[in-house]
């Protein structure tokens, strides 16, 4: 398995190309855009691009899908039925599927958005905006922050500590580091976010 990371100025997001040397196939995760260097990467390695995995339907993670579909014929996986006008193969929590010769597990971790999916390929977790290095994804309420924090604890932190975390934004990490030093996973995190409500103001 080879993982290539691309940084997009558009939304400051990360796109990953995951290549399989054995099958000469590749998939792309969260294409925020499609750049010449990404095409070069695919062509240079003689990869057949078979799939696009979307962690959640926010524009900084999907903007490149339409361009990709004009050049290649990949299957789009997302927890949505459609992204733009493109029909997706809908993935649900705990779905397991094969693509590009990889066994992929889908783990639903809603909170940042209701459609957030984490993809696990081997010992690598592509966490989108659910989990970043040191912080969890931004939520619209303290309730969602609490839910996201709990779901990460239940569904992701059960994996080995040396699992690699490849987030949708920012630098990479390992699960062991996140367990100990992620601000969003510290006790009382959501409580600190909640603004006290004063009935008399």
């Amino acid at each position: 398995m080879k993982i290539y990371q691309h940084y997009s100025i558009y939304g400051f997001s990360n796109t990953y190309i995951v290549g399989n040397e054995a099958t000469s196939q590749a998939l792309i995760i969260d294409p925020s855009e499609l750049t010449i260097s990404m095409i070069d990467q695919i062509q240079h390695n003689r990869y057949e691009l078979t799939a696009i995995l979307i962690t959640h339907n926010h524009i900084h993670h999907t903007r490149g899908v339409k361009t990709l579909m004009r050049i290649y014929q990949p299957q789009v996986y997302a927890s949505n039925m459609r992204i733009y006008d493109i029909a997706c193969r809908k993935v649900r929590d705990r779905d397991e599927f094969q693509e590009s010769g990889f066994s992929i597990s889908a783990i639903a971790v809603p909170g940042h958005s209701q459609d957030s999916i984490v993809y696990k390929i081997g010992a690598s977790l592509f966490t989108g905006d659910a989990l970043h290095a040191g912080v969890i994804g931004r939520t619209t309420s303290a309730f969602n922050a609490q839910a996201l924090s709990e779901r990460i604890g239940e569904k992701l932190l059960c994996y080995p500590e040396d699992s690699l975390v490849f987030p949708g934004h920012g630098p990479p990490s390992t699960l062991g580091t996140e367990k100990k030093f992620n601000l969003g996973l510290q006790p009382g995190y959501a409580k600190r976010l909640a603004k006290p409500y004063d009935f008399f103001v």
Partner: peptide, 27 residues
């Protein structure tokens, strides 16, 4: 670029005049 030093112990090291882009020094 795009590296992680999470939970590492760094003593008497120099990173001067460097490009340290997307690097994780958390913990």
């Amino acid at each position: 670029d795009f590296c992680s030093f999470g939970e590492s112990k760094i003593f008497d090291c120099s990173f001067e005049n460097s490009e340290l882009i997307h690097v994780n020094f958390n913990g």
